[in-house]
Amino acid sequence: MAGAQFIVQADGGSRGNPGPAGYGAVVLDARTGEILAEAAEYIGRATNNVAEYKGLIAGLKAAHALDPDARILVEMDSKLVVEQMSGRWKIKHPDMQPLAAEARGIAARGKVEYQWIPREKNKEADRLANEAMDAGKQGRQWEPKPRAAAPVAAAAVDEPLPAAPAPRAGWAGPADLGAPTTLVLLRHGETPLTPLRQFSGSTGSDPGLSEKGVWQAERTAEALAARGTVQAVVSSPMLRTRQTAEAVARRLGLDVRIEEGLRELDFGDWEGLTYAEVLERHPDDLNAFFGSAKAKPTGSAESLTTLTHRAGQARDKILARYPGRTVLVVSHVSPIKSLVRLALGAPPDAVHRMELSAASLCAVQYYSDGNASLRLLNDTSHLR
């Protein structure tokens, strides 16, 4: 099997996080999709992340036992493990550091590539992990089920032979993903409404920057010019974002490109009101808004789901126009939080758990394989 190409799919789970945990892994022939090996184990009390790493280790060991020289594509639905093992995210948790080191030591450097897949495409590993946890609940370890033997009798002359397994689509070893496209996400500077914490969306008074907001925009321009990495500037059409973007673009000698999809959410009847005023006048609508991404502000035509869709479309346009470049994207709280959420693969309500200050910077890198990596969140160090 020298020169083989394997696909390792791995998963882990914990019923309680931490709680009773187990992992599962399968090794597939990359060309045919045939399952070559399975591994699963109940590991006692652990977290999801520890179980996922142990599943990865088991899958790599199984592939290594089949052919130490094989090239391996690891497919997992754990964004954390994929990004950490790809080197795009740091491994800070002490429980994960030795597991990651063990995984790296199994296969030769350059022989393994990592790719995120959605959970529905990781069903075999997920099944094995759940079988392992079920076995642990019964006080035993997982045991592989015997596979049905292939028939050996020759087919009749007029009987069609069974079709061969469909080949895996086109993986030929570690790919050169090229330079990522980096979106530096800048929230606009303060407006007169910002310190009052009034709702300010896309259908209100469209305020410009306050004196402090102008100062914030100029300080941001100085900082970005000093870094020298921004190659293009894209802005929401709102006045406050255009003024912020133009301050940076002037310093960098660039033009500002307007993207309609980056505008703020339509807050409807909440425009210009404070949170306390909305809570007093529209309590049911406000509670619904924070409880569901599909709920709309009173009198608005937009929900966070709608906004996320258009912000995602705007992102895709920018990525297509500026591949491999660093782009400053000047927008608002809701679109920026939504893009960060999408990059993390976080649930919709995660947008309500982020702080985003005026003139703050976030940064997301996008790779050609569809993965994204959050590099910066709510950075205001340039304003100090």
Results as ranks from 00 to 15, higher is better:
residue 141 Q to N: 04
residue 56 L to H: 01
residue 86 S to G: 09
residue 155 A to V: 12
residue 137 K to P: 08
residue 158 D to A: 12
residue 156 A to K: 13
residue 163 A to I: 09
residue 138 Q to Y: 07
residue 50 V to K: 06
residue 158 D to G: 04
residue 138 Q to H: 13
residue 165 P to Q: 06
residue 150 A to Y: 08
residue 47 T to M: 09
residue 101 A to F: 10
residue 134 D to N: 13
residue 98 P to R: 10
residue 64 H to W: 11
residue 85 M to Q: 05
residue 154 A to Q: 12
residue 153 A to C: 09
residue 143 E to M: 13
residue 92 K to H: 12
residue 40 A to D: 01
residue 164 A to C: 02
residue 74 V to A: 08
residue 154 A to M: 11
residue 73 L to K: 00
residue 145 K to N: 12
residue 148 A to F: 08
residue 84 Q to A: 04
residue 79 K to Q: 15
residue 151 P to N: 05
residue 160 P to Q: 05
residue 137 K to L: 12
residue 63 A to I: 01
residue 74 V to G: 06
residue 82 V to H: 00
residue 131 E to I: 11
residue 146 P to V: 00
residue 135 A to W: 03
residue 134 D to E: 13
residue 160 P to Y: 06
residue 63 A to M: 03
residue 141 Q to G: 05
residue 163 A to N: 09
residue 165 P to V: 00
residue 162 P to K: 00
residue 142 W to S: 02
residue 158 D to P: 00
residue 122 N to S: 06
residue 85 M to Y: 07
residue 151 P to I: 09
residue 66 L to Y: 01
residue 106 I to Y: 01
residue 59 G to M: 02
residue 148 A to V: 13
residue 113 E to W: 00
residue 81 V to C: 10
residue 83 E to K: 11
residue 53 Y to C: 09
residue 83 E to A: 13
residue 46 A to V: 04
residue 68 P to K: 05
